[in-house]
Nucleic acid binder design. Structure first.
Lengths: 159, 159
DNA sequence: TTCATATATATACGTGCATATGTATTCCGG
DNA sequence: CCGGAATACATATGCACGTATATATATGAA
């Protein structure tokens, strides 16, 4: 029964994530992006975040990885940092022209990849997959918040 | 429309995978295992692989990461390596008693985690999710093999 | 004002994964 | 039997992610 554990959603999701990441990485590389950059790029362009903290929250990663990624992105000419005039601890982060120019291509590439991977899925199946994953992620978040601080009221539906 | 790309199956799967990994990692830690160890442990116990190469294939990771993981697992007393009498390049890898003893707990822990995460899923929904993921992974594999060697016949259904 | 605390970021380190490349052994054709 | 190709593994390097912890600036209360 041990093989069981390799047929669980948890393991399958891990496999799928690695496969997707490899594919996307390979295709974004010529554009000078990495998969992990996308949430940052999108957030910056849409004005949904402009500090390291907000970007980390938006991308749902911790602050140290975000700091490292921003350092690499700055090194690679994708973003710029300017000291925040109002807060000496913080920096305002902006996209460079180059990054902005190539972002639409990157987004299109990723969307195309998704389309290819779901090639034989009906629209209904694709919607279903997204819905199931969304619920699963919500459950994961709920469990994580409970394990993190036992005794804290569980965030209900509207998180 | 850029937020789009963060609602794709690709990105959702990535989020789900990280959430699952964090949860499982935290729960396996007290047992002395990591999430990535499981395919190795299972393969070794079931006799489905006993060399580095076969373990890497089984776990669907590349050889260098597998080498590193085995080095850590050996360091941590989970596996042992013995020179292969028949092939001087290769080592036969076996589980230690300690790892074998704790493996059932680890498997149970992961299965329990899956159960919790799918708490509000009907059996039908859970089956559907697994089926959709399995198809998606197959598509990813197919695309990967095409991109890797264009012009090579695509492996059909029975890979 | 000043000190304790909170916040924003930085740094250190470990793991998992990738690619690129080196080394040693086996295998095979001549 | 011998030299080159294939194979098994090791090593170097880089990115993404995590935790733990340090540093610097803000902020608020006494």
């Amino acid at each position: 029964m041990d093989l069981d554990v390799l047929s669980t959603p948890g393991h399958l999701i891990s496999l799928a994530a690695r496969g997707f990441a490899r594919l996307s990485e390979a295709r974004l590389k010529p554009l000078g992006f990495g998969v992990g950059h996308l949430p940052v790029l999108v957030a910056l362009q849409d004005g949904r975040a402009s500090t390291q903290r907000d970007l980390a929250r938006f991308a749902k990663i911790e602050q140290p990885p975000m700091a490292q990624m921003l350092a690499r992105m700055e090194r690679d000419g994708l973003i710029r940092r300017a000291p925040d005039p109002a807060d000496g601890r913080s920096s305002r982060i902006t996209l460079t022209k180059a990054a902005e120019a190539r972002l639409p291509d990157a987004v299109a590439t990723l969307l195309r990849g998704n389309h290819e991977v779901l090639r034989d899925f009906t629209d209904e199946e694709a919607r279903l997959l997204v819905a199931l994953l969304t619920r699963l992620i919500a459950n994961l978040d709920r469990i994580a918040s409970v394990e993190a601080s036992p005794g804290t009221p569980i965030p209900e539906k509207g998180d």
